[in-house]
């Protein structure tokens, strides 16, 4: 209980490194979510709208990729952005860009799959109305995303939730560098292992708060969609 009290006082006391870590985490997660959403939502909508051969295979692939563990995604990206890898000259490894790239790759299949399955709940008459009014595929995609914005919001939130809570990619690609790539989850992994529970716990509280907020917003989106 004492540790919990200390954890709260760390937060309330505005201890700079703790808050910096929180801000950095959110910064990485927000950017990576943006980069995951830009291709993910249109792709999800395209899968939903498209009538093409191999669609089932494509959907199954997206779902399969979604289940790949974070450390595998981390390893994969690592092999690309290492200085001895093909994208080495960009110097992304052990830098924020590397973490954001890895997290975006992590969230991308999730956002795609969630958009796809979410849009399936959308009234099929929207698509038929767009078709009958002569909307071309590109316009249909935009209109479907617009009409399905509440499920899209959920997909985006799910992506954000996944990258905020993950540790494998952040650790492997960020290197847990103080004042640079240290995030809430890598700090927890590091501090808990060192027996320093106060900061780990205070960050755990923040992560819990983030998760609760995401759930709450997601719930609002579901309610408003009706």
């Amino acid at each position: 209980m004492n540790a919990l009290g200390n954890a709260f006082s760390l937060l309330a006391g505005g201890e700079r490194e703790t808050w910096w870590t929180i801000a950095t985490s959110l910064r990485f997660s927000l950017w990576s979510t943006v980069f995951a959403v830009i291709p993910g939502v249109p792709l999800g909508a395209a899968l939903f709208l498209g009538r093409f051969k191999g669609k089932r295979v494509a959907v199954a692939m997206v779902n399969a990729i979604m289940a790949v563990p974070t450390v595998v995604v981390g390893l994969f990206v690592y092999s690309f952005i290492s200085r001895s890898g093909p994208l080495g000259s960009l110097n992304m490894l052990y830098a924020p860009a590397g973490v954001i790239a890895g997290q975006a790759l992590l969230a991308f299949p999730l956002v795609t799959a969630m958009s796809y399955t979410g849009l399936q709940k959308l009234d099929p008459r929207y698509n038929e109305t767009l078709l009958t009014l002569g909307a071309r595929p590109w316009r249909r995609m935009i209109a479907i995303i617009r009409e399905g914005r509440f499920v899209i919001v959920q997909a985006v939130l799910a992506g954000f939730g996944r990258v905020t809570g993950e540790v494998g990619v952040s650790m492997m690609l960020g290197g847990n560098i103080r004042w640079y790539t240290r995030t809430m989850t890598t700090t927890i992994a590091l501090d808990a292992g060192k027996g320093e529970f106060e900061r780990a716990l205070s960050l755990g509280i923040v992560l819990l708060g983030v998760a609760l907020s995401i759930n709450f917003l997601s719930h609002l989106a579901v309610r408003d969609a009706r």
């Binding site: 700079r16 910096w20 801000a23 959110l26 910064r27 927000l30 509440f150 004042w179 917003l217 408003d224």
Partner: peptide, 28 residues
């Protein structure tokens, strides 16, 4: 209300992004 919700959510996300960007860039 539907419109307001999505716009508010997007605006809030942008604000948070701006804030954490500024704070994290400030560093130590």
């Amino acid at each position: 209300t539907k419109r307001t919700f999505v716009r508010t959510a997007a605006l809030a996300a942008l604000l948070v992004l701006g804030a954490v960007q500024a704070f994290a860039m400030g560093g130590k």
